[in-house]
Design a protein around this nucleic acid. Structure first.
Lengths: 198, 198
DNA sequence: ATATTATTAGTACAATTGTATCAAAAAGGG
DNA sequence: CCCTTTTTGATACAATTGTACTAATAATAT
């Protein structure tokens, strides 16, 4: 039997190198050669793990969604509901350096989504997952009778979802104008605005 | 004197061809050759108007912002204030096919902004212009005593701005999940939520 | 008509691209 | 030790890239 390399671990390492190159030089300069160099591999070796650049990009984008998903699932959901919702939603915000990299990569791939069928499918799936999570949050707020009366729940789902992604995008593109703190406070402000006066 | 071509008109035509190629095949496939072909020009001829691809891309992105700006400035601002604000804000939403193309191009260039200094500057300038416009809207709502009491005006500016761009992005990336109508209705819903009960 | 000059088109070139191929290297099981 | 098979690295190749260069073209003012 030959040398054994944990296939999936290696793929993840390569995907992270892909993130680095994309963040540093942009998607259009993320050639297989640069990514291989970033991962300290030869092109041939990289190709052994990813038969094509398309596969590599798809996996790299998938890794972002997986990381976010695992973080959300790994949370302890006990405590005041509003706090919990704020925390859960913060997982799709670029609140620290790691998340910022992930969100930046996600944004870049999202743009590519418009002309790449494979990425488009992944993008849609993740979008629907987040949408479902937000629906759950609004529903739960309602069940707990925290929600203001006379709110349009469907509209609130769309609004919260758009707000989250808008805040994330703004902070990534204009971190000095929409600061980390403003991003978080605005989310909190919005959640509070949904709830009844105490 | 030689053949005279309206320089700026020609540049605009080329920039629109650039949009087409970007929408159809993506930014990474928007080579000067493809753009020249789309514009029915030779590469050498295109180069006569744009010395480099970078110049072409910058001009093409600028054209988007100029189109939007002119549309906003060209509006008649008489009528119920809320209607007017909705209309003005709708100019940065992809509410029809033309605007959809523009916003899609803007989104793609925005991603490139992260690794392109020239585009970054333009992006920031436009962002601040829109931000300023939104501040004006919130301020005016307050002056007219339409605004709910006890609202945090600074937070409302950030929130509305993020909401607009979030809605636009969602509709461009997932038009079937966030429909045109939902986008518009959600904006209206939000604006109404800012205002006092009648 | 002709001279002038913006405009156009064609070709060239070095660099980079994704992918293919194939042999060398490495390591664990017998 | 040796065989087997994964892993690696190097080279090659056709295609495409942005840009440069140069000569032909076309239209206008005199």
């Amino acid at each position: 039997m030959p040398k054994i390399v944990n296939h999936n671990e290696r793929k993840i390492k390569i995907a992270e190198s892909t993130w680095n190159v994309i963040v540093r030089e942009g998607l259009e300069n993320a050639s297989v050669r640069k990514i291989a160099a970033e991962a300290n591999l030869s092109v041939g070796s990289l190709r052994h793990y990813f038969p094509s650049q398309s596969d590599l990009f798809l996996f790299s984008m998938e890794l972002v969604s997986e990381r976010v998903r695992k973080r959300i699932e790994g949370k302890n959901y006990d405590g005041p509901p509003l706090e919990m919702f704020q925390e859960a939603l913060s997982e799709v915000l670029p609140i620290d350096e790691d998340r910022k990299i992930e969100m930046e990569v996600w944004l870049v791939f999202s743009a590519k989504t418009l002309v790449d069928r494979r990425l488009e499918e992944l993008s849609k799936n993740v979008f629907i997952q987040i949408r479902t999570g937000i629906e759950k949050i609004i529903n739960t707020l309602d069940s707990l009778e925290l929600l203001k009366e006379n709110v349009d729940q469907h509209a609130e789902v769309i609004r919260l979802h758009a707000l989250i992604d808008g805040l994330a995008t703004h902070h990534i593109l204009h971190p000095n104008t929409v600061t980390n703190k403003e991003m978080i406070l605005t989310l909190r402000y919005h959640l509070l605005s949904l709830c009844r006066e105490v």
